[in-house]
């Protein structure tokens, strides 16, 4: 498999494509590739969704478990932090011998990358629950599990939601690089665009990727606000939050 640099060098003879006028190029690209672009968006969302479905239970469980032991908390949070510093390309490379190429190594990597925000926010959220509330729960005869399920987790949900939001934003970007090992998604067009010196392909795909990220970010921001309102916090509400809250309450 060739590196990125040789890919760019190999495609040097495709320069004529770049000579057509700007707007026309974009029109040509969209008319030829719009359908394929949509498929790639769907693929991308699919990879993110599968990764998050795996990452959320793991991250929240870890976050809950480490509230019982401070040493475990330090170790787990440190490991999650270290995992995040490993470059994605290197991580894919390390996982290919185990999971082969295509989606599996990418999904596993995305799960790993989303652990720091998920675990940390779960841990911080649970510890941030007002002491009086957990004290009252204990005094009224709730078991530790009942306190977690009925009080701590619901009250920590907005903070956990923020973690989820951070995780999604991070992995949408990382998933694009996954195309390099054959996972598909919007990364496909970015790599193809680089190979073929197709600037409109790179630009449009990047814009779509950014819009996708912003859409997810906004969606999670709204749900975070809804959870905060549910917990009785006073916050500045975005317009959709206000509308949804009215419908829900």
């Amino acid at each position: 498999m060739s590196t990125l640099a040789t890919l760019v060098a190999d495609s040097a003879d495709l320069t004529p494509v770049l000579q057509a006028s700007g707007v026309q190029q974009y029109q040509t690209f969209l008319s030829r590739y719009a359908g394929e672009l949509l498929v790639l968006v769907a693929e991308h969302i699919d990879i993110i969704a599968v990764s998050m479905l795996l990452a959320i239970p793991i991250g929240i469980t870890l976050g809950v478990l480490i509230t019982f032991n401070e040493t475990a908390a330090t170790v787990v949070l440190w490991l999650a932090g270290v995992a995040m510093t490993v470059p994605s390309i290197a991580l894919f490379g390390l996982l290919i011998p185990v999971f082969g190429i295509g989606e599996p190594p990418v999904i596993v990597s995305l799960v790993v990358y989303s652990q720091l925000p998920l675990v940390r926010n779960t841990y911080v959220g649970l510890n941030g629950v007002d002491d009086a509330v957990t004290q009252a729960g204990r005094g009224l005869g709730m078991t530790q599990v009942e306190r977690l399920r009925q009080i701590q987790v619901p009250m920590a949900l907005p903070v956990i939601m923020t973690g989820l939001r951070n995780a999604v934003v991070i992995i949408i970007g990382v998933a694009a690089i996954g195309a390099f090992v054959g996972a598909g998604g919007l990364g496909d067009f970015i790599f193809q665009g680089i190979r073929e010196r197709n600037v409109p392909m790179i630009v449009v795909t990047t814009v779509v990727l950014v819009l996708l990220t912003l859409a997810f970010d906004y969606l999670f921001a709204i749900s975070e606000q809804l959870f905060r309102l549910r917990n009785g916090e006073q916050i500045d509400q975005a317009r959709p939050t206000r509308a949804l809250w009215k419908i829900l309450s």
Partner: peptide, 20 residues
């Protein structure tokens, strides 16, 4: 412990109501 606490009422200064 748990049975005991459920059979005894408990009120604290900070109230500790469940806001959600």
């Amino acid at each position: 412990k748990i049975d005991l606490r459920r059979s005894i009422g408990y009120v604290i200064q900070d109230i500790g109501l469940f806001d959600h």
